[in-house]
């Protein structure tokens, strides 16, 4: 089972890491995960020396798995790095976020509530390096977004690869 989907694991790992590396993170793009899903299909095709058309079911599975592995590795690494360094985006961007929230035309009670909520998360992260709410958010966000983008990448990627196969068979 693992061997069958090894390319999805490898590409998911790569995409997950790219999502959390500080410098590379600034190049984050909506095409990272779809490209990883496409790459997992391509690697699988090359590894098996397959010349068969990729079915949509296979593309869906590889895309979903790439997304899930990217979310898993990305979330675990982000939580681990935060735990070790006791520093992350939320802490760094807190003053900016504070300014942003204060700029909204809403009642001061709501603003105070929201700031208190994030102040608690920030304090937990600085003192313990861990916050339940933060961890839950990271996992939920990563799994939902990466899975959907992975599926889209898999389905579009399969058409690109099938198109190449069609061309090759036309030439022969």
């Amino acid at each position: 089972m693992i061997k069958k989907y090894i390319s999805a694991i490898v590409c998911g790992f790569g995409a997950g890491v790219l999502q959390i590396v500080p410098l590379l993170k600034s190049f984050a793009c909506c095409l990272f995960i779809p490209f990883a899903a496409f790459l997992s299909l391509l690697l699988d095709q090359r590894a098996n020396k397959s010349i068969e058309r990729i079915t949509a079911k296979k593309a869906f599975t590889f895309g979903l798995l790439t997304g899930i592995y990217a979310a898993l590795f990305g979330s675990v690494f982000e939580i681990l790095i935060t735990f070790i360094t006791k520093h992350n985006d939320i802490i760094a961007a807190f003053p900016q976020m504070q300014k942003m929230i204060e700029g909204f035309p809403v009642s001061s009670d709501v603003k105070q509530d929201v700031l208190k909520l994030f102040q608690n998360i920030r304090e937990d992260l600085i003192t313990k390096g861990f916050s339940w709410l933060y961890t839950l958010t990271i996992f939920l966000n990563n799994f939902l977004v990466n899975s959907i983008f992975g599926i889209a990448g898999g389905l579009i990627g399969a058409q690109i690869l099938n198109n190449k196969l069609n061309k090759r068979s036309d030439e022969n």
Binding site: C29, I90, I101, P105, T137, N141, F149
Partner: peptide, 24 residues
């Protein structure tokens, strides 16, 4: 947020969510 101020609770989470797919 101007339409429903309770949406303000979700704003930081949404910002984090979209940071996955854009450099912002």
């Amino acid at each position: 947020v101007k339409l429903d101020e309770n949406l303000l609770y979700a704003i930081p989470f949404l910002k984090k969510n979209y940071s996955l797919v854009c450099h912002q």
